[in-house]
Design a binder for these strands. Structure first.
Lengths: 230, 230
DNA sequence: CACAAAATAATAGTATTACTATTATTTTTT
DNA sequence: AAAAAATAATAGTAATACTATTATTTTGTG
């Protein structure tokens, strides 16, 4: 017996719910692994079909195309981070302490949560770092936004922004700082590994603690409670 | 009579120097316009060839593929920003004043400089905002990095980082802040226009002054000279 | 200015990609 | 056990991302 947590996403993101069947779950699971392995540009439904022993046509009955599938994966990540924040900040009075926990989650994306078996969260984290922003950097942002494709990111930003405002109700840029912490977390993990001159932090293996420390310094210095900065 | 400024880029970025011929210059000029218009994904050398009344094969003699061409355009932008920084901060003693000028340049990417006729800088700025990060978010980052494809970004980061250190030699994250100011400038222009809930700034038309004010606030608060923050 | 060399254009062709359609087979539901 | 739904197998199309070949035009040099 075990608890399965299911992340529910906007119905516009898929044609058939991939969580509702074995094949659907394999599409998600193996897409994450395959995109991580060969990159979004080289990835396609043909290769995925071969990987999971199915056919292109069957995959197309779940997702319109690989771009929407990417948005599905990214949304899944946004929603999962949101869930982790709720779990781990529950019952904590101090907003500053809650923000520290949030920053830890953003930087480490946490180790695999066995409650969600059909997604390898570490690999997904790598994928988000490498390909995440492509989800919303597209000519169709506005129409996709109208369909609610980016709602999970907005809600996550709201959530973090509200904690920031709790710490300092006069802070002028709660949402900008919130989304920037998310973007920075991903960017500086990537920079440390591939373009180290663009950052000052080191990442050894999957130890992102320097990123976490930097984000904490940035956040608390900006919000203006210097005594909380450590 | 007039002065023409030419931006020289890493020779690995092209097969034949596009600045050396009419056709090459049209490839650059029209690529910027076409990518801005239809987006990087829909853009290809066939459409570009039709646009400039040439052929695919001719374009392939200048650039290996559209990805490398994108890196060329982004490098051009990085180098141009570097040039603008040099020009406009020349002879200014105060590092803080120099940083303010840098932030203004990052946010506005300046209006068209008639000294460079074959690139529409406003359109290029839009392109960088929308597609810029795709240049280095690719499976081949490491090998492309070795070929020096991202040198201009690193040099720009260095340059800004040094000014930051001049203001506060004890600041621990000069390069991270530098690259983050660059990324934030682009991101928040984009967010304000397409995903406003991810930011707190407004952008009306091409007036990015709120982005500039926010970046100034972030930078000077972090660097730690609060009296300079305005 | 004439000729060689280089660049470009025209044309054609290939393998892969991003799909759609049709029908057969298997699985699920009732 | 029959009906409905999902999947697999197969085939096909238009577009993409190139490469190759040859003809034509432009440019550079003696």
């Amino acid at each position: 017996m075990s608890i399965e947590i299911t992340i529910k996403l906007n119905k516009n993101l898929y044609l058939r719910d991939p969580q509702s069947s074995k094949l659907g779950q394999r599409i998600i699971k193996d897409s994450i692994v395959l995109i991580d392995k060969i990159g979004l540009e080289a990835y396609n439904f043909k290769k995925l079909a071969i990987q999971i022993g199915s056919t292109e046509a069957s995959i197309y009955r779940y997702f319109e195309n690989k771009h929407v599938l990417l948005i599905y994966l990214v949304s899944w990540y946004w929603e999962w981070i949101s869930y982790l924040i709720d779990m781990r900040t529950m019952n904590i009075e101090s907003a500053a302490r809650r923000l520290k926990i949030i920053i830890k989650i953003l930087a480490h994306a946490s180790k695999n949560d066995p409650a969600i078996s059909y997604v390898d969260q570490d690999v997904l984290h790598r994928l988000i770092i490498a390909e995440g922003t492509k989800a919303y950097h597209t000519k169709a942002v506005d129409s996709e936004n109208q369909k609610g494709f980016f709602l999970n990111y907005k809600q996550l930003t709201d959530k973090i922004g509200k904690v920031i405002l709790e710490i300092n109700p006069k802070f002028a840029y709660p949402n900008a700082l919130a989304s920037n912490l998310f973007e920075m977390a991903n960017n500086h993990c990537y920079f440390a590994q591939h373009l180290p001159r663009l950052t000052d932090v080191n990442v050894e293996g999957d130890d992102f603690s320097e990123v976490e420390i930097m984000l904490r310094y940035f956040a608390f210095t900006l919000i203006g409670k210097p005594n909380e900065a450590r």
